[in-house]
Amino acid sequence: MWALTLLVALLVPFMALALLERARPLFDIAPPGRLLLASEWRPLKQEFGFLPFIAGTLWVTLIAMLLATPLSLLCAIYLAEYAPRRLRELVKPPIDLLAGIPSVVYGLWGVLTIVPFIREVVAPWAREALGFLPLMRSDNPTGYSVLAGGIVLGVMVFPVIISTAEEVIRAVPNGLREAALALGATRWQMVKGVVLRRALSGVIAAVVLGFSRAFGETMAVMMVVGNVPQLPRSIFDAGYPLSALIANNYGEMMSIPLYDSALMAAALILLIVVVVFTALARIALIQAIRRAA
């Protein structure tokens, strides 16, 4: 049992080493720093620039976080501080269910609902009303866009942020709340001035956990994001996240030299970013809950 447990603990470094080993041939043609910032992706000519894919991942992740962070935090505050017990017990199971829905089902929803909605409603409207804004130009008629990816991802991230943030907010001792209310604060003033201030690091950790969930999500995003290797210039442009790059090309990766190394390097990037962010968030959470209680 001891050996098995140790093996599990060593799995993260082992995964990183295995992927690094497979990706190493790629680093012989160019140093990692150059590969990350190069934007030419022509596997047949042995050019592997990751920038479009990194940009694609960042675009969908940032849109998702812009959408999910305020909604999820407001939701978590409501559930922790305002909602009557019966309502809370009514609403928690659906939110947990949201976390359990498979990502292809989110993807299907995106393809059947969000993408047509962007194509028929949002993009034409934005072309009329917001075309002068740099990030809103829409010349992509398909609806498959970083915006669609961001919306679908945002919904997937809701339950992650809500459940963690709610737990952190609940851990704030009641004495603090009572003190604030006794001084004549309204509930919101109490939340804003006392509860959130005390729970701040934990709330940030909840958002970071949501971020790392969004960062590596694959199937749902690749179904709606268009998968064009370019640097998106508008929320209506198609993008091509790292995760989709891996999932779309595993079929031919063994037939083109260095292609498999490049895909494993993409997996390594995802692994490193997610591990660093998750580990920092988890450590912050442990401390936040210990300190609050």
Partner: peptide, 15 residues
Amino acid sequence: ALDVLWGIPSIVYGA
């Protein structure tokens, strides 16, 4: 370590 593993994207497990 287990919490971090829980968060690793499944595409990375696939690779």
